[in-house]
């Protein structure tokens, strides 16, 4: 069996005394795209925080290409090849666009088959950012900030890309652009976790789907199986 790019095994996580994630397990195969769905407060971002090391898990393990990263600090997890496009974008507002990319730059692994990401390749992918490279990131529009957040994540030449609701708060045309970008990244062979509330966006691009409900994994399936019916999505996702 091939080694998974990312695996969560029986993760328990708490904010203070509240038990948020309860025995959460899911896996992302290499080169695949996993859609992680769930309604408000289901625990999607909490999963991301556990993976990147911002919220230490109280139980369970997180593995990246078979290596245990559960107890590592965020800087070391980043060095293991995990990059996050955070919910709400969280770009560095007092830095320029170029500086936002520069601070996240990391050379790719020696064994990597892909052309490395640099500011030039990111700017080639997002020409709007190139035009604004000397502006402060705070002055960008929402869509541009989202592109910058994606570009910043790519600068680390990650092996696994986590994207937490990248379509949130964007106009439909911009959402389409973002989805096209995600498709391109997937085609380049990157392993991706795409967190969304709206399953329609995810079903097109995802290979696998995991649905969180109340801090537990309620469904592990594929888009094909879920569109065929059989599982009542409204039960887990509400009306969409």
């Amino acid at each position: 069996m091939a080694i998974d790019a990312l695996g969560l095994h029986d993760i328990d996580a708490f904010y203070g005394d509240s038990h948020i994630l309860q025995k959460v397990s899911f896996a992302l195969g290499e080169g695949r795209l996993l859609g992680l769905l769930g309604r408000n407060g289901a625990g999607k971002s909490t999963c991301m925080n556990v993976v990147v090391g911002l919220l230490p898990a109280r139980g369970g393990t997180v593995e990246v290409f078979g290596g245990d990263i559960t107890r590592l600090p965020p800087e070391s997890i980043s060095a293991r090849g995990i990059a996050l496009v955070p919910q709400g974008r969280r770009i560095f507002k007092s830095l320029t666009v170029r500086e936002n990319l520069m601070v996240a730059a990391r050379p790719p692994d020696p064994g990597s088959r892909h052309a490395p990401w640099t500011s030039e390749t990111v700017f080639a992918m997002f020409p709007r950012l190139a035009e604004r490279k000397h502006q402060l990131a705070a002055h960008l529009s929402g869509g541009e900030q989202q592109m910058l957040a994606i570009g910043r994540a790519l600068m680390a030449n990650p092996r696994v890309l986590l994207m937490d609701e990248p379509s949130e708060g964007l106009a439909p045309q911009i959402v389409a652009d973002v989805m096209a970008t995600i498709r391109k990244l997937k085609e380049s062979g990157l392993s991706i976790v795409l967190v969304e509330q709206n399953p329609r966006l995810v079903f097109d691009v995802a290979d696998d789907i995991a649905i969180l409900n109340g801090g537990r994994v309620a469904v592990v399936s594929t888009p094909a199986e879920l569109t065929r019916g059989g599982i009542d999505l409204t039960q887990h996702l509400g009306v969409y």
Binding site: V52, L54, P74, E75, F92, L95
Partner: peptide
């Protein structure tokens, strides 16, 4: 400098700066 930008990033948003790989 890149060092200075990393310092400013660490002031802007310390947790995300760490996630990005900056040793804040």
């Amino acid at each position: 400098t890149r060092l200075g930008a990393m310092i400013r990033a660490g002031v802007d948003d310390p947790p995300i700066a760490r996630v990005v790989g900056i040793k804040v």
